Amino acid sequence: MSKNSSVLQRGFSRVILVGLLGLGVSYLLVVALVMIPAVQTYITYAHHIDFFGYNKFDHPEDYGLAPGKTVNMKLQSSDNTTIGAWFIVADSLHRERSLIPPTPNQRLACIPSSLSKRPTILFLHGNTGTRALPIRVTVYTGLTARLDANIFTIDYRGFGDSAGHPTVEGVARDARAAWNYLVLQGAKPQDVLIVGHSLGTAIASLLAADLARDGIEPRGLVLMSAFSSLRTLMDQYYLFGFLPLLKPLSVIPLVPRVLTWSLKHRFDTLTLVPEVKTSVLLIHGENDWDILHTHTSTLFEAFLEQYLPSPPTLCDNPLSSQYAAQNDFRTKRRSATVRLTSISGFGTLEEFVDHKKGGRRVAMLKTMAGGHDIGRLEGVQDAIGRMFDFY
């Protein structure tokens, strides 16, 4: 009996060993694949993933939008790449129209009038799918109703019915092309709010920084479910919500450098913080398992850093009284600078006025629920409306 038990134990151990070896090899294969540029492109943008496979963009009514409310169009980016776009009019303007929808050309001709009557949100969506993804349509309808805003949204190159292949420079060009179109149609910069979600937050930040370099200030910038940088996101990313993708490799010398070197699409919103001049609202759900809400905290602290004393250095002894005093002074200064509001049953709002950049407002809303698709929450839409004077 004991001999049979010994044989079973050895067999069981062998199975466990082979299983662990298989997991290790699979993990290394996944990491190796991630380092291939073409694979990185597909993972970063996921532009060929369309869960519904039904892209009849010239019939936005098929996606739940009201008849005659949306204009389907094509834009030309600065490198002559054709991109698809939707212009969705504010609810109050749509209700003024007759029951019989206007023709596509009539809708197109009404865009300048719509821009002059109501503010417009330039919405830059995240990866995967298209501008017609149902969850995005839900956000559009909420914003056109609660904020009574026009929505202008695009599919970046390689997405939906847009031509080309996505790159950091390319999608930034596409966002600027959308902005330029609105301005050419008569929109004033102060009437256009830039809103980005997920991957779109990196693109929205690139656009805001680009406009600031040209001396242009939009109505504001909203970043929903943002990541501080793609490199940091890779370090903190968990497959299926619990398997760390690259974190185990961080303990191996030189591997982090190799991973950084291999990164093709270098989205880095954190480095753009000093260049953004307009008011900013950062929004994140604390139960977002796709992108941890700590990324948004990092960005908010970066905007705030200029108002705080320098933190204790690594050389300082954390047990010394001087270290504790420095830390305490920094904490008190932060409390004096930032106004904290707790919203019962919803979340917290932190805000400060940046007097060094024209008195702009910088705020961070953390919600208790909402997950990754935070823009569908009415409380989030209300926060946007209040901060940027849509009401």
Rank of each mutant, 00 (worst) to 15 (best):
K3Y: 08
N4P: 05
V7C: 08
L20W: 07
L28F: 08
V30D: 03
A32K: 06
M35L: 10
P37G: 12
Y42Q: 11
H48K: 09
Y54G: 07
P60G: 05
E61W: 06
Y63V: 11
G64L: 14
P67T: 10
K69A: 14
T70D: 00
V71F: 10
K74G: 11
T81H: 01
V89G: 01
S92Y: 08
S98L: 12
P102K: 14
N105D: 09
P112L: 07
L115P: 06
T120G: 02
T130Q: 10
L133G: 09
I135Q: 11
T138H: 11
V139E: 10
Y140A: 02
T141P: 10
A149Q: 13
I154K: 06
G158E: 03
D161Y: 01
P166R: 02
T167F: 03
G170F: 03
V171W: 13
A172L: 02
R176W: 07
L184R: 05
A187N: 03
P189D: 11
V195R: 04
G196H: 04
L199G: 07
G200L: 00
A202L: 01
L206R: 14
L211W: 00
A212R: 03
D214H: 08
I216C: 08
E217P: 08
R219K: 04
G220F: 12
L221Q: 00
M224A: 15
A226H: 03
A226C: 11
M234E: 14
Y238I: 06
L239A: 15
K247P: 06
V255I: 15
V258C: 09
L263P: 11
K264A: 13
F267A: 09
D268E: 10
P274G: 02
P274C: 02
V276Q: 07
K277E: 07
S279D: 03
V280F: 14
L282Y: 06
I283H: 08
W289A: 13
D290V: 15
H293S: 12
H295D: 07
T298L: 15
T298W: 05
A302E: 12
A302K: 11
A302Q: 11
F303I: 08
L304K: 10
Q306P: 09
P312D: 01
T313F: 06
L314N: 10
C315R: 09
D316I: 08
L319E: 11
Q326M: 12
F329E: 15
A336E: 15
R339Q: 03
F346P: 10
T348F: 01
E351G: 08
E351C: 13
D354G: 07
D354N: 06
R360W: 01
L365A: 01
T367S: 01
R376H: 13
G379I: 03
F388R: 04
F388E: 01
